[in-house]
Computed example of a mutant assay.
Amino acid sequence: MTFSARAFARSFPLGWPASRLRSPEERIGLAVFALALLFAMTHSLWAHEFKAGDIEIVHPWSRATPEGAKVAAGYLVLKNHGGSPDRLVSATGEVAGVTQIHEMGVDANGVMSMKQLADGLEIPAGGEVALKPGSFHIMFMDLRKPAREGQSFKGTLTFEKAGTVEVEYSVDAMGGEHADHGG
């Protein structure tokens, strides 16, 4: 059996799909269906999630750093789908010599401070914890190379129960608000 482009074209004349759809509602319905199908097929390309046991790690990201910067921060959402709490106990980042889990806060006098969470960060059973600017975050110190917008870098997260999982941090623009990537 041979394939003929001319025979194929005769089978489906120009305008075939539109000629079958007579009403605007049918055409809109087809367009919505096509967009939904496209979204379903490409969603995994956008997904930036990792899993370790009952812990889901949603969109690890960082901001671009200026040349010569010595620190950067990492952000993500930790979701615990299990029936018991777990704890993020350590992290690494290939861009840093030292990586720690930190919390930023403001005291009663309005003074902002940052401290290392030496015992890690608890993720409650059935709950989630957002590591975000001005709150909990991963601190990358003694940077070996700058974080560049549009690139990514690898790291690990280690949990008390779920173990260690490799993650990849996407690098967003240096300033401004982070776009929500599903976290």
Rank of each mutant, 00 (worst) to 15 (best):
A125M: 05
G82V: 10
E94Y: 08
V58T: 08
M112K: 12
K161N: 15
A36I: 07
N80R: 07
E128D: 03
K70C: 00
Q116H: 05
A64V: 04
K115H: 10
I123P: 07
E160G: 08
R148M: 03
A130N: 02
P146G: 08
D142E: 14
L35E: 06
A34R: 07
G93Y: 00
A91N: 07
H102L: 04
E49I: 00
R87W: 01
A64K: 09
L76I: 05
I55L: 11
V77E: 12
I57C: 05
H43M: 03
L35S: 10
P85Y: 04
S90L: 04
S135K: 12
K70Y: 01
A64I: 08
S113V: 00
L157I: 11
H102I: 15
V95Q: 03
V98H: 08
A40E: 08
V98E: 06
R87G: 00
A31S: 12
A96L: 10
F39C: 13
T65P: 12
Y75E: 10
L88W: 03
G83S: 14
L88T: 06
K79H: 13
T92H: 03
H48D: 13
I138V: 15
A91R: 08
A36D: 03
P146L: 05
I101R: 01
E49T: 14
L88N: 02
R63P: 05
T42E: 05
Q151N: 14
S90E: 06
F39E: 02
K79N: 12
E49C: 04
K145Y: 10
G68Q: 06
G93W: 00
K132C: 00
G120Q: 09
A91Q: 01
M41D: 07
E160N: 09
T99M: 07
I57T: 05
E149S: 13
A91K: 09
G74A: 09
S44W: 10
T164L: 01
R87M: 05
R87H: 04
V111N: 08
G127T: 07
V106H: 00
H102F: 12
A91G: 05
G120N: 07
R148F: 01
Q116L: 03
I55D: 00
L45G: 03
E67V: 15
V106Q: 12
A162K: 06
G83W: 01
L76E: 03
V111Y: 00
G82Y: 11
V89Q: 07
M41I: 10
A125T: 10
H43G: 05
D86C: 04
